[in-house]
Design a protein around this nucleic acid. Sequence first.
DNA 1: AAACAGGGGTTAA
DNA 2: TTAACCCCTGTT
Length: 296
Amino acid sequence: MNYLISDIENGIKVSGLRDFCPEHIFECGQAFRWERTEEGSYIAVAKDKVAEFLMKDGELYVFNATKEDFEEVWHDYFNLDTDYQEIKDNLKKTLAYSKNDSLKEAIEFGNGLRILNQDHFEMIISFIISANNQIPRIKKSVELLSQTYGDFIGVYKGKKYHRFPSPAQLAYQDPEEVKEITRVGFRHTRIVEAARSYLEENDKFENVSLEELKNNLIALPGVGPKVMDCILLFGYGIEDTFPVDVWVKRLMETLYLDQPIPNKKILEEAGILFGDYKGHAQQYLFYYARENAIGK
DNA sequence: AAACAGGGGTTAA
DNA sequence: TTAACCCCTGTT
């Protein structure tokens, strides 16, 4: 995507962005290291950077960031080389799109939503924490984990920020201590063991075929089908995957199948309905269904 | 004020 | 297939 960066006080202004809405990007359930401010901007952490994002009059204001930060970190984080016009055009050709207006409405509702390109290890640990859990609590645990074990980044607006812990920073912690500090509950041994596996058997998780990656991810403690699909979609950029949580199950039953269906069958149906871009369809629909309490 | 219900994937039985 | 895992929030 072509855009123009100009300097402003304490940051930059990015002009010419298309399909970019911070609210939809952060609130849609794919990321945990962000907070909404009173002004409706979003402060987010990625790698060793903290920045504040505000969309105003079609331009993106990024505070606490330089042009170099944007080009080196945020461009990739937001997947700015991905053309969402093309993705939306492809979704319009699907069976689901012609079946009823739900996908059309979901895309309009979530317009400007982008699937992020987040760190592999951070996604593995974050989505293990997400199991049987809720977003505010997941965010709290991820924050405590970072504060306690991650490298200090700096202070922004009076708050201290830390990187997400590295595999080595997590792998040899006492699980009981992790539990006490981070409020992850019964997931404490899972995250420490997963960190150790990722560290000691790193070649199982990087530069391997998709088939092998899936086998190795699902073998990690705390990683089942849903968590694996989230890691693949939000970390590894696999668009052809379809995480089924309670909301997706409900919306599939309510909007497309008209009856209760086991999860395994939902995956088959999703392939038929949404084709190769099912990850994007899932994200638009999940956000739309959750914000509008569809199926509840 | 204290008790209780609701929410939510994976795992071991 | 089903119960247990844990913590936070909101309601009674």
